[in-house]
Computed example of a mutant assay.
Amino acid sequence: MTTTDPARAELPTTPSQTVGPFLHIGLVWDDGPHVVPEGTPGAVWLRGRVLDGAGEPVTDALVETWQADPDGRFDHPDDPRGPAAGWRGFGRSDTRSGEYAVHTVLPGPVPGPGGAPQAPHLDVSVFARGMLHRTVTRVYFPEHADAHAADPVLRAVPADRRSTLIATRAADGYRFDVRLQGEGETVFFDV
Rank of each mutant, 00 (worst) to 15 (best):
A61W: 06
T95S: 12
T18S: 10
H121Y: 03
Y100G: 04
P152W: 13
A68L: 02
D52V: 07
V139D: 06
M1N: 11
L154Q: 05
D78I: 03
S97F: 06
D177K: 01
P37T: 05
F189N: 05
E185G: 12
P33L: 13
V153A: 13
D78G: 04
L165Y: 11
I166S: 07
S93Q: 01
A101C: 10
R92V: 01
D94S: 14
R92E: 00
A85D: 03
Q67Y: 02
L62H: 06
A167V: 04
P21K: 14
A43L: 07
V124C: 04
A116F: 01
A61N: 00
D69M: 12
E64F: 05
T168Y: 08
P113E: 15
L27W: 14
E183D: 15
P41M: 05
G86C: 08
V139A: 09
E38R: 14
D123Q: 11
P117W: 01
G112A: 10
P107H: 07
G182I: 11
T3E: 13
L180P: 02
T104L: 15
G55Q: 05
V178I: 15
P15Q: 08
G115Y: 08
G55T: 05
Y100R: 05
T164K: 09
P15H: 10
P109T: 09
T168E: 14
D5F: 09
H24P: 03
L165K: 06
M1T: 09
G48M: 03
P152M: 13
G86Q: 01
G39E: 11
D5R: 15
Q118V: 04
G86N: 00
V105Y: 01
D190F: 14
P21R: 15
L106M: 04
R88N: 08
V28C: 06
E10W: 13
A54N: 06
P57G: 09
P15R: 12
P12M: 14
T4C: 04
T3Q: 13
E185Q: 15
A170V: 09
Q118G: 05
D79M: 04
T18V: 15
P142Q: 12
D94K: 05
L180M: 10
R88V: 08
